[in-house]
């Protein structure tokens, strides 16, 4: 393939392209199939939520996109380039405990900046770090260690750390799964505001098992069943979204019922197959 052809292929290709992805683990000499024939295209600027029951492989799929797992089959391309480990165009927010406990909030963020931009001066990295910590509302906690922050605040730092490297793609693995309900609402709004107010509109892949969270945040919901994608649901509510307004609309209620039913169908399936599952 000539260079021009490659270029044009890149241009027409999706931001994230997954083809026939297969993921198999070997543990204790036993093979375990986590994902089978996953096909998925995510366009630039899309906010995609991956939702599904626990154990369906949604976190595994995200880990493949993060570059932490090497797929055992199929192709994963970002910007048309096959994924080979983590990359600087991607930033990740894990569920919990991903900050370095020996670094202050500020230093955690500037550490990540320094990894992406090797020649940056320490003082400049710190400046950017403070700027992003302010954006997530932590201006009074800049010099605190993670152990001195609440779970919600730690996730704010993790978000600041991810955004501070100006990634093209933000990968989030149940980022609000470990915080209390009230904090979760606050963090969802924070994320939504940051994403909507940013002119670039990052591509976001967000794994969750919370239907309301997915409906509030995403443009598109990928509903996963065990090892495969069950369906792909567009979420076309207008933006900027306001939680209270959104909840009042009929479309929201309809879509929500549909998704909830799908969740329970899934459990019903399991009962049929395995018998006496509950």
């Amino acid at each position: 393939m000539s260079k021009i052809e490659t270029e044009s292929k890149r241009n027409q290709e999706s931001k994230i392209a997954v083809e026939h992805l297969r993921m198999e683990y070997t543990s204790n000499n036993k093979n375990f199939l986590a994902l089978e024939d996953i096909n998925l295209n995510i366009e630039e600027g899309q906010f995609v939520c991956i939702i599904g029951p626990s154990g369906c492989g949604k976190s595994t799929l995200l880990s493949v996109l993060e570059g932490l797992y090497t797929p055992t089959g199929g192709d994963v391309r970002i910007n048309g380039i096959p994924v080979d480990g983590p990359g600087r165009e991607r930033a990740v927010v894990f569920q919990h405990y991903s900050l370095f406990p020996w670094l202050t909030a500020k230093k955690n963020v500037s550490f990540s900046i320094a990894q992406v931009n090797k020649n940056i001066k320490k003082t400049r990295a710190d400046e950017i770090s403070v700027e992003y910590l302010k954006k997530v509302g932590l201006e009074d906690f800049i010099e605190k260690l993670p152990g001195e922050l609440s779970g919600g605040m730690q996730q704010r730092v993790a978000i600041a750390r991810a955004l501070a490297v100006s990634p093209e793609i933000l990968l989030m693995d149940e980022p609000f799964g470990a915080v209390d309900a009230k904090t979760r609402v606050v963090l969802q709004e924070l994320l939504l505001n940051l994403w909507e107010s940013d002119g670039r509109r990052m591509t976001v892949v967000f794994v969750t098992h919370d239907i309301d969270e997915a409906l509030l945040l995403s443009d598109r919901i990928i509903f996963m069943g065990p090892k495969h994608i069950r369906c792909d649901i567009p979420v076309a509510f207008p933006r900027p979204r306001e939680k209270s307004e959104l909840y009042a609309t009929e479309e929201y209620a309809k879509l929500r019922v549909e998704l909830v039913n799908m969740f329970y169908d899934d459990i019903a399936d399991k009962i049929d197959i395995e018998g006496g599952w509950l």
Binding site: G67, L68, G85, P86, G87, V92, F94, S98, F111, V116
Partner: peptide, 10 residues
């Protein structure tokens, strides 16, 4: 988790 974090931070 520490290692994974270091990896995804490049």
């Amino acid at each position: 988790k520490i290692i994974d974090t270091a990896k995804v931070l490049n």
